[in-house]
């Protein structure tokens, strides 16, 4: 029983979140989705409806690519390591390649909507 619970926990959590990559942006909300490919100036990411959007590379301040969490947590699953670590590596390498690619320039892409910053005052509403 004690051996089953960690595996169950990690599998459930990974199933929920590991497939998506996260892109942090300067002054804009953090987006999550599938990184499909890139152009010299933009990164292309798809939302849950499959629509593809282009995000200017200069506005991306950081990334948390899919698969990384799978790799980091795989040792906790005991023998699940043998399955999860390679899966995580494959996914992470795929996302790194997609992020670094610059040959996806011909697809019809949508620009990411601009989000307006608001003034929360001296004491931000939390």
């Amino acid at each position: 029983m004690p051996r089953v619970v960690p595996i169950l926990l990690i599998a459930l959590t990974l199933a929920n979140a590991a497939c998506s990559s996260i892109l942090y942006r300067n002054g804009q909300a953090t987006v999550i989705g599938d990184v499909r490919h890139g152009t010299p100036t933009h990164v292309v990411i798809a939302n849950s409806e499959g629509q593809q959007f282009r995000i200017p590379r200069q506005s991306v301040s950081g990334t948390r690519l899919g698969g990384l969490r799978t790799i980091l947590w795989s040792p906790l699953t005991g023998y699940g390591l043998l399955l999860m670590a390679p899966l995580g590596v494959l996914q992470w390498v795929g996302d790194v390649n997609a992020l670094d690619s610059t040959d996806g320039g011909n697809a019809a892409l949508l620009d990411v909507p601009f989000e307006e910053e608001v003034d929360a005052g001296p004491e931000p509403h939390r």
Binding site: N26, G27, T30, S61, V118
Partner: peptide, 13 residues
Amino acid sequence: IYVETEDGRIVRI
């Protein structure tokens, strides 16, 4: 809705 960005700003959606 108001959401927080990574650098601590608040934007509206």
